[in-house]
């Protein structure tokens, strides 16, 4: 089973993720900040990481830049989720496998986005 990590500091947003992914055929782990995200990723290699952008301390874009410098994570796909416009973060496209998920999103959009990388039917 594929492993998915979601870094999201907003408990309500986490609730939406849980609701949308409760019947998904992969294991989902949740953390509430960038520091915990880094810790989790050291314990285990995830197949896909979803990052919230506006977080305290380590923001999603900062965390993303850190991952791209890490030899274990430089090729791991990342989805950046935010209520900001996609073009605000377009500059990250140059850094490899990354896509943007504009909040709000529907269950269908989320599953499609994840499947682009995990290639398991929902």
């Amino acid at each position: 089973m594929k492993d998915l990590l979601i870094v999201e500091d907003d408990p309500e947003m986490q609730e939406f993720y849980r609701d949308m992914l409760n019947d998904a055929p992969f294991a989902v782990a949740y953390v509430s900040n960038g520091e915990d995200g880094l810790k989790k990723m050291k314990e285990k290699k995830y197949d896909l990481v979803i990052l919230d952008i506006m977080m305290e301390n380590i923001t999603g874009d900062r965390l993303f830049a850190l991952l791209r410098k890490d030899r274990h994570y430089k090729d791991v796909p990342v989805i950046m989720a935010s209520s900001l416009d996609k073009q605000t973060y377009q500059c990250f496209q140059a850094l490899g496998k990354v896509s943007f998920l504009e909040k709000p999103f529907t269950k269908e959009t989320l599953i499609n986005e994840i499947n682009k990388y995990l290639q398991t039917p929902s």
Partner: peptide, 18 residues
């Protein structure tokens, strides 16, 4: 400001979807 205004609306929309 964009983030602060958009986030609750986005969550409302997702809540309605849920």
């Amino acid at each position: 400001v964009t983030h602060e205004l958009k986030t609750p609306v986005a969550k409302m929309e997702m809540a309605i979807d849920m």
